[in-house]
Design a protein around this nucleic acid. Sequence first.
DNA 1: GGCGTATTTGTGAAAATTCACAAATTAGTC
DNA 2: GACTAATTTGTGAATTTTCACAAATACGCC
Lengths: 408, 408
Amino acid sequence: MPHGYFDQHQHSDINELADVIGELLQNPVTIEDMDHRLLAYSSHSESTDQARWSTIMGRRVPEKVLTRLWKDGVFQHLFSQVDPVHIPEKVEIGLGQRVAIAIRRGSDILGYIWAQEVNRPLTSEDDEILRQAAKAAVPLFLQRQGKRKAEEGRRKEFLWELLLGSHRDESLLLQKAAKLQMEIPPPFLISVVDITEPQGEQLTQLLYPLLMRDKVYNVTDGSQVILLICSRKGGQCNDGTLLQLVDQFMEEAFSKIVDKFGEENVFVGCGRPVQTLTDSRQSYQEALQMVQVKRQFPRETRHLIHYNKLGLYRMLAHMHLINDAQGYTNEGLGKLLAYDRENQTNLMETLEVFLDHVGKVNVTASQLHIHINTLSYRLKRIEEITGYNLDDPNDRFSLYADLKLLKI
Amino acid sequence: MPHGYFDQHQHSDINELADVIGELLQNPVTIEDMDHRLLAYSSHSESTDQARWSTIMGRRVPEKVLTRLWKDGVFQHLFSQVDPVHIPEKVEIGLGQRVAIAIRRGSDILGYIWAQEVNRPLTSEDDEILRQAAKAAVPLFLQRQGKRKAEEGRRKEFLWELLLGSHRDESLLLQKAAKLQMEIPPPFLISVVDITEPQGEQLTQLLYPLLMRDKVYNVTDGSQVILLICSRKGGQCNDGTLLQLVDQFMEEAFSKIVDKFGEENVFVGCGRPVQTLTDSRQSYQEALQMVQVKRQFPRETRHLIHYNKLGLYRMLAHMHLINDAQGYTNEGLGKLLAYDRENQTNLMETLEVFLDHVGKVNVTASQLHIHINTLSYRLKRIEEITGYNLDDPNDRFSLYADLKLLKI
DNA sequence: GGCGTATTTGTGAAAATTCACAAATTAGTC
DNA sequence: GACTAATTTGTGAATTTTCACAAATACGCC
């Protein structure tokens, strides 16, 4: 019957626990939460490896190490079993030989304990120590989680306040943010991720690793997840680098979500970068507008992420209103539509594909599965019927805009 | 000393005068105003030619006859001399041999008297009769002109009312129009002709023959002439045929004006066709907007006449407002502008010419007098600097629109 | 002056576009 | 079924576009 290593006292401090484990194993120990942020590390040992050093300095496991361990299937092991996992040395990422165990409650993983093997190799006896250590850590994690939950609630409340309120007093908002320990160095922006079918909560879970890695705050609203994104290193970040960062973030996030839900169900939009918390609302509105536009024009706006590059689609709603007010209709397109209806042709589609491919005939023809001469014939026909000249930039613009407007 | 043929009585009626001349000359006589509208014709004679017959039936000299007489220099003769002009037969236009004289007061020409030579040839004695007849006609013309002036004044007043007032009661307007004998069968439209330098009055004079031929009412406002244009045959005219008619009218008018003042000084715009007098204002506003836009974008809108085909330029002012309100700027173009400034390049111009020629590289290159590979290099550079993709329709339209917006 | 970078021009080959013309196909009408 | 008109596809040649690569030129900087 095994010894009860952690029976004597309830550990009130997680660092204390780390020290106790370290002493028992006679090796350096670190404890991380589920997002690999450093929670505690044993203090007594002097010798360590590059990976542990970086983790402590950065208060988080380096990305490089994490991705490598993912690739090597270490985490998959940790997820699927209760026992410690022995990991051989991986020189390329500065990771010495070590043992890891997941801290779990039921099927949930709360965090990890890592033990190096620098002073002595770890035996199966040590595995038992780690098993018990993982159990002993659970109450500490739950306690921590409780605090965090409450704080998260207040943070989310504040985020909604930023998104919806129309504020005047920037300094008041800054104070609130500071009280909630939310660092939001400008510039930042608001992004909306909208999924047709699943609940936002599921989405958040999916994105969780990403949300943690970059400086992102989030709230959920029905099928939407709303993100506030800023750079970790505030000072050196201008609008351009923020957009780059978001691009990168979205690329990863998007592929994850699309894998799960299918591209046609996912809509992502970002408002413009803003400098003040007061302007959060503006950025949020823009992100919302983007999502709406992308639902209406999924194909045309598929590759768009940033509000500033919405181009025509930024104007479309306004143009629709103006046209309504003026009683404007594009007579050429009207005639074309009538012609299509009367003759069961599809000149309208032909025109749209043509315009969507900036007038490249071979691309258009192959897209429509027609002979290139057929296309050329149809285009001539379209010019005759509409009275527009496809070689005139303004006529092209009119047709493109009015064509898209017809879809509203 | 010559006989005073018309001394005995003041002719109160112009038809009476025509009959007296006809009897003296023993030949058919017609009297026309300066615009060749029939005012009177002698009644006694039975034999006549095709030209006279058409003139009487159409209450105006046929266009065919007029243009031929212009070409043959007959009118030039009539303008430059006080004596009658003898005109040989012109079979092709059904014009028999005749004599014509201008009715003048000082240097102004008020109208014409025509005498055919069907019953007997006209001698120099008859020329004297015509000279005296022309003199005798002057008071009748002045009297007529006086009436017309007053009526014209009331008509112009009414036109301004249509253009500027915001009316509710269509039937009231119709009544007024009827009282002024202004037939305005719908559809009609308002057009504005704007000349940079000369006074509108001069312009009206230049256009006078055209104004008379088609159903056009006009008023002058500073450097602008405002026209209300409708079809003579109201019932059969729909919007499309009206636009065609206007095209034709403008083609002729435009060439006349451009010949005189140079293309860069002339701006013509037409509002949309409307069905009710109440809507005149709308059409007028559109015509005004067109003229304004054409001043701002003379090259781009040179060939545009109808409001409905303004395309992008119809939206530009609105878009400008929206952008201002949103604080939107096209960052790509901003970068390009900065780049041009720092490196004394002209990528901006390159881009504009490229877009103005719907992406045809050879046209663009020749327009810019550069090698085609230079152009291709610059375009690649433009894409790099702006971050826009010239093969993306939305990007293209954004650049096109925002480029033109920069000029406002 | 020399150096490196940005820009322009040249060459040539593959691919795409334009155009005219002919043949085949389709659809509607009598 | 035969006829007509509209549409589609095919062929071929002249022109244009695209692309890669090399050489020449321009410009700022040390």
